[in-house]
């Protein structure tokens, strides 16, 4: 399906200063969907480790757990027709409970947590469902307008069943007053599209006395039916 550009961020969003010098000035050239875009890399569960989806322990010292409010983040990966996308790789990364990234370029004064790395990955099940265990990331300051603070967020990188579906996005948390003030969020021109980036609390999935849960569904582009129904394995 052609991409709906009215719900996607413009390449150049002046309030997000980094986009000024990094946004192409020419229009993208449209092209037919070819086998190159209609097929995509396949990842299998054997390429993942058993703790890859558990950010609470996957970088923790033995017997330790990451600092912060324990969370389950889960949802379904769907295509535009509403079908679950099975077997798809989802990668996440985030700041720690203080808002600090484990990255040499992050100069925020908030402390690192020795037991938190900030990366996770999972492969969707046969219904397109996924689940991570992590901690609540904190908002953090960033050099943009002088006093900009990112809302708490988790970065997502998503593969679908074809390379045209490749998506990178960010998940926010319901009720965060920084969402409406964020130039990166507001690069998205459509309020409904923004609302769908905000995960909702999911009391059903909460683990009592252990972890709150948030639900975040992700929709990838649909594909032309002929390819979807009869997926070529190398044309």
């Amino acid at each position: 399906m052609p991409r709906d550009w009215t719900r996607q961020p413009a390449a150049r969003a002046p309030a997000y200063r980094s986009s000024s010098m990094r946004s192409p000035e020419h229009a993208r050239i449209s092209m037919p969907a070819t086998p190159t875009e209609n097929i995509g890399p396949v990842f299998t569960r054997d390429s993942l480790g058993p703790l890859d989806h558990d950010l609470i322990v996957n970088h923790a010292r033995p017997g330790q757990t990451a600092m912060g409010a324990r969370l389950i983040v889960h949802g379904r990966l769907l295509d535009q027709t509403g079908r679950g996308v099975p077997g798809a790789l989802i990668e996440v990364w985030q700041a720690n409970a203080s808002g600090r990234y484990r990255h040499k370029r992050d100069g925020y004064l908030a402390p690192l947590d020795p037991d938190f790395g900030g990366c996770g990955r999972v492969i969707t099940d046969q219904n397109g469902a996924y689940m991570f265990r992590t901690i609540m990331p904190a908002p953090y300051p960033w050099p943009n307008g002088g006093n900009d603070w990112r809302p708490a967020h988790i970065h997502f990188s998503v593969f679908g069943q074809c390379f045209a579906q490749r998506l990178v996005t960010q998940m926010y948390f319901e009720g965060d007053p920084l969402i409406a003030r964020c130039p990166i969020v507001n690069a998205v021109p459509d309020q409904d599209a923004i609302a769908r980036l905000i995960a909702q609390p999911d009391m059903e999935a909460t683990v009592p006395m252990d972890a709150r849960a948030y639900r975040f569904d992700i929709v990838l582009r649909g594909r032309r039916a002929s390819y979807f129904e009869n997926r070529p394995e190398g044309i």
Partner: peptide, 17 residues
Amino acid sequence: DLHETASQTAGPYVHIG
């Protein structure tokens, strides 16, 4: 049809993930 989820920048720390 559902709408495709909006993209957001990978940001400066994309290598972590």
